[in-house]
Write a protein that binds this DNA or RNA. Structure first.
Length: 641
DNA sequence: AGCACGCCGACT
DNA sequence: GTCGGCGTGCTC
């Protein structure tokens, strides 16, 4: 009889992650099995073989054809330790749903293997490529602005690996960017698998099985979860636009795709990890500098940009004529560009029409009943919406408190900008892209219209800052560059810098003369100043000093602890108690707080938090593992909101 | 996740 | 006294 340590998949609670079962034939670790668990039968993964235990065991109910590769099992165990998270939940994130289900496999369309167009590399690209090829390191930070041709470097590296029968994993931050990227790799003559959120459970399962049994090397392109593709021999992992927040999973199991990718590369000996970005996260750049990680610079092609940049100080109201949103220079540039038959892009990182609805008489503010946050006005739909939980209310005609009909709307969002543009330029085609845009009108569906200059004014939030390559774009306007800067968080400068630099990067991609106008209350803030000039080094130097002074990452590790109770006072007391316990129990940690969470009142609960920091990450993992019940945690949080 | 256990408030 | 709310703990 064989005794096996088995971890049930997706089971929460309990002290131990794995339980002992028996079976009459040997099962290697990584085998996926069905086990009786309580009154049910669940899926489990064989984690280890053990001696006969002192208690009676149940028998495995059956063995499934799917197995977890040895590397993925090791990765799962590492993740559960590194992130103090249950192995059970890590395995759930790793394995497709519905294991053991028979799927009807359709004949899929033949892979479109376009002929390889053999592009010649620039000398900078060749240099970067050689540096990564020669290096014996695992991690490489490829630092290059958009348009410097990082994708070409990825593709050439991929070619090396594929011809050596090794698979290639390309992580992308979001699906809108994948079609172009997939096209680049399709030309290599190997099968390209694109994983995305639109796949059904069955499609996902079938793809997973195909990857598992594949005999030839594969190219996988997908979001952070693509790391869990059961590839046997990985030669290269690329994390494109590695600064993007979507590489951080913020639901259980919480992890950073960059750290997990690094571990996965370690588990496939000889493989390389390439992190590509124009604006790497400060922490990643700092780590790269202080370890012996290769930082490969990829400069922008020379003389490709002819962009005039103008900063407008929002405090100087004389720059504004009759218009409350658009300054004279911005209006002039918009008019000229439209007259020339070219395109304008207006970036504003806030959705909706107005930020807040306020009664002019009694000061009543429309608040979401679940989140207790101000609701945003959506004028076109005639309703108020909560941008946190999605709750909707009809727009009241009178103040519900004092029946006053004058309700004032403070602040503005992308819909307001759209309204204004349509009013000012009624004959011009306008498109707005944000998360209120219906799915079938999203950016990637209208890419051809944009490229072919059919849409003259493009308005949007974050989504239009990334990857857009528009040859007819002559004017870029940032309506309020510091809206991100007002968020009280240790990484808000960094986010502002990234967004500003990204939006600026949209201008003049076709080599034409272009204008960028940035409206801001803080023209002197380094995040704006260096964002405008896309000066990463200067911003880095500034922000590193800030972080050091504030005792924030990368100078310390962070652990965010959150608890919730029916009353604010109880939550605060629980936090105060825990703070005392932590200070008495652990030596190498310091504790900030208690403080109410950014959204203190959500639903029926009040949230309070503590922030624990330490120079020893292991100390924080210990704290996280031994938390009292009712506490939730996040290791290495990228923000503390 | 489910499901049982057990400790406090509300009620025939 | 007992019914049942939900917070807590367990599943080999």
């Amino acid at each position: 009889m064989h005794y096996l340590l088995i971890c049930p998949v997706g089971v929460i609670g309990g002290q131990s992650d794995s339980l002992t079962y028996h079976y009459d034939v040997a099962c290697p670790t990584g085998t996926v099995v069905k086990i009786p668990f309580g009154k049910k039968t669940v899926t489990g993964v064989v984690v280890d073989t053990v001696a006969k235990p002192g208690f009676t065991t149940k028998a495995i109910a059956g063995i499934l054809s799917e197995t977890l590769t040895p590397e993925l099992l090791q990765l799962a165990i590492w993740m559960s330790e590194y992130y103090a998270s249950r192995l059970s939940l890590v395995l759930q994130a790793m394995l497709p749903r519905g294991l053991g289900t028979e799927r009807r496999i359709k004949n899929d369309a033949p892979a479109l293997n376009k002929k390889t167009k053999n592009l010649t590399l620039s000398s900078d690209q060749q240099k970067a490529l050689n540096a990564i090829r020669k290096s014996k390191d695992i991690t490489h930070l490829l630092h290059g602005v958009t348009g410097s041709g990082k994708t070409t470097v990825y593709r050439e590296l991929a070619k090396d690996n594929l011809s050596a029968a090794q698979s290639v994993l390309i992580l992308v931050p979001e699906i809108a960017l994948t079609p172009q990227l997939a096209g680049e790799f399709a030309g290599l003559g190997y099968e390209v698998t694109v994983l995305h959120s639109g796949l059904t459970e069955a499609q996902r399962h079938i793809l997973w099985q195909k990857i598992l049994v594949a005999k030839k090397p594969l190219i996988i392109i997908g979001p952070r979860s693509a790391l869990f593709s059961p590839l046997k021999n990985i030669g290269l992992i690329v994390v494109d636009e590695c600064h993007e927040p979507s590489y951080q999973q913020d639901s259980q199991p919480k992890y950073s795709a960059l750290r997990v990718a690094r571990k996965l590369a370690e588990l496939h000996p000889g493989s390389k990890l390439v992190l590509g970005s124009a604006t790497p996260l400060l922490t990643d750049y700092f780590i790269a500098q202080s370890t012996n990680t290769k930082i490969v610079q990829l400069p922008a092609p020379i003389a490709s940009r002819n962009t005039k940049i103008e900063l407008v100080d929002l405090r100087e109201r004389e720059d504004f004529g009759s218009h409350p949103l658009f300054s004279k220079p911005l209006l002039a540039a918009m008019k000229q560009t439209i007259l020339n038959g070219k395109q304008v892009l207006l970036f504003h990182n806030r959705r909706g029409t107005a930020r807040m609805s306020l009664c002019t008489h009694c000061g009543w503010v429309a608040e979401c009943p679940n989140c207790h946050l101000p609701m945003r006005l959506h004028h076109d739909a005639g309703e108020l919406r909560c941008h946190v939980c999605g709750h909707k209310d009809r727009l009241p005609q009178l103040c519900p408190e004092c029946k006053n009909p004058d309700i004032d709307f403070k602040g503005f969002g992308s819909k307001r900008i759209e309204q204004e543009v349509k009013r000012l330029f009624p004959q011009v085609s306008v498109a707005r892209f944000d998360s209120d845009t219906p799915a079938k009108q999203q950016l990637h569906h209208r890419y051809d219209e944009l490229k072919d200059n059919k849409i003259k004014v493009i308005i949007g939030t974050q989504g239009i800052a990334k990857g857009l390559d528009l040859p007819h774009l002559d004017t870029v306007g940032i309506v309020q560059a510091d809206s991100e800067l007002f968020i009280p968080d240790y990484s808000s400068s960094e986010r502002s810098f990234q967004l500003t630099a990204q939006v600026i990067g949209r201008a003049g991609r076709g080599g034409q003369a272009s204008t960028v106008i940035i409206q801001t209350f803080n023209p002197d803030h380094p995040a704006i100043r260096y964002g405008v000039t896309e000066d990463y080094k200067a911003f880095y130097k500034y922000e590193v000093k800030e972080r050091e002074a504030e005792h924030m990452p990368p100078f310390t590790y962070l652990l965010q602890l959150t608890t919730s109770y029916a009353s604010s006072a109880t939550a605060e007391k629980a936090a105060t108690d825990l703070k005392r316990t932590l200070k008495n129990t652990y030596e190498d940690v310091s504790v900030r707080g208690p403080s109410p969470a950014f959204h203190e009142h959500r639903g029926r609960s009040f949230y309070w938090q503590l922030v624990v920091s330490s120079h020893k990450r292991s100390a924080l993992v210990e704290v996280a593992k031994n938390l009292p019940s009712r506490w939730q945690f996040m290791l290495d949080p990228i923000n503390l909101l």
